[in-house]
Design a protein around this nucleic acid. Structure first.
Lengths: 242, 242
DNA sequence: GTAGCCTGATTGTCGGACAATCATACGATC
DNA sequence: GATCGTATGATTGTCCGACAATCAGGCTAC
């Protein structure tokens, strides 16, 4: 018979401190906006050195649970910003050698339903920001950098218009990856800009009429266009992004 | 005329050091598995104190870019693990007061297409792990905790079977939120367990036959069942999860 | 070949230190 | 009265030096 022991794991102090503070935040004992005590005070309470507290704070800070309000010294509890979280996700995907195809396939699956839901749930304000994004792409698309950014921004507006945080957040990393994907393609396909513009207008129009079916359909074509773009630009879909 | 100045921002040293190391990793100059120099050496190279380096390392560590191989002191470059990233995302969503409805709606949009793609791309190995997950749920569903975990695990297998990292990673945070959602419902609905079991079997069977259409359809019913569960358990869909 | 021991390297933690910045209150000036 | 300048204390960012615990590798004895 074999005697087995569980692996004993020594958790360093800075991690325990971070976990203790994180738990208080997650349980909402420390509400958003609450100011954290100064480092010396935290060190006293936890019975550790200030250096240890500081290492813990860096961990929480990079996780978005703490932030420093501009022009303030004390840390305040914060809800992780969607953009910051999305950056981590897209960074992780990039390091995992995600391919053009994977991103395109995900867009194919996500965006048409998003457009459908957005068409149903959009408010007047959403419509305005969509129209504004559409307009910006039409105006400033000469510069490659601005063009890809505005193209992604249009999707972001659609995501917000779904009024579903889960959907909006799930979309963000995709858009982070869409930008570099589009960057290498858009200038090689002369008609790309006008196709994007046309698609945005159609989608916007469908949203205005709250025509969910049409919004979905035009979005599906919009995404299919991207794939055609890669083929025209002669970019292999199975090579990794950036 | 108004003279305007750009906001001048003082970036603390630990953040600069973290950014410098992160850039090297992102550019793949430091490949995965590469061992980072010891802290004293890094301090010497950057011309800062070891404490400053340590704060930077904590930041990178919590972002998943660095990790310590078990039983080793030196940090090694690592690709952020999907699970770790997903934890951050679901934590963020929880803090943003995400509701049952939002999670359910996202599942409704994501899972049926995932099942369809998985049915097409699944390998024999995927099929095995799906069958195993199915079996585990059937065997160990008396304990609430195990039941919800195994239910989520089945979805995870479907996600992996798509062979698309973007889809698999996008699904993870959803499953983190599915668990607490299911936890409060499953014991209030007597038929929940048998319904889940039946759905899993149908989906598994469709995958075995590579019948994408059927896989999608059964998955759609599976998700619809969840909603019915909430209604039967008398849980308001617009209240936030845990 | 394995177990034990030694040595150097490295991390985790500590204590103390100081300049720069922020918050606040108090006067001085217009 | 409003604005400015200054003084004061609190807080962070950074540094230095220190030490125990742990890890890696080599050496020895059996």
């Amino acid at each position: 018979m074999s005697v087995e022991f569980d692996q004993i794991q020594l958790v360093p102090g800075y991690r325990k401190v971070a976990a203790a503070i994180a738990e208080r935040i997650l349980s909402r004992e420390l509400p958003e906006g609450e100011r954290l005590p100064p480092e010396t005070e935290l060190a006293r309470q936890f019975g550790v050195n200030r250096s240890t507290v500081r290492e813990a704070l860096r961990e929480l800070e990079s996780g978005g649970l703490l932030e420093r309000r501009p022009g303030s010294k004390l840390m305040t509890v914060s809800r992780p910003r969607h953009r910051a979280i999305a950056k981590d996700v897209s960074r992780a995907l990039a390091l995992h050698d995600v391919t053009f195809f994977e991103v395109w396939e995900a867009l194919t699956q996500f965006e048409p339903p998003f457009a459908e839901i957005a068409a149903r749930n959009r408010t007047a304000a959403d419509l305005e920001s969509l129209a504004a994004a559409c307009e910006r792409f039409a105006q400033e698309n000469a510069d490659t950098e601005k063009a890809v950014h505005h193209a992604a921004e249009f999707f972001r507006c659609v995501g917000r218009a779904t009024h579903n945080q889960v959907l909006a957040l799930a979309q963000e990393p995709l858009l982070d990856l869409l930008e570099p994907s589009l960057r290498v393609m858009i200038d090689k396909v002369p008609q790309a800009r006008s196709r994007i513009m046309a698609a945005q207008r159609r989608i916007l129009e469908a949203m205005t009429r709250r025509d969910a079916e049409a919004a979905r359909g035009w979005m599906a074509r919009h995404i299919r266009d991207f794939r055609k773009g890669y083929e025209l630009a002669d970019i292999a879909l199975d090579c990794r992004i950036a």
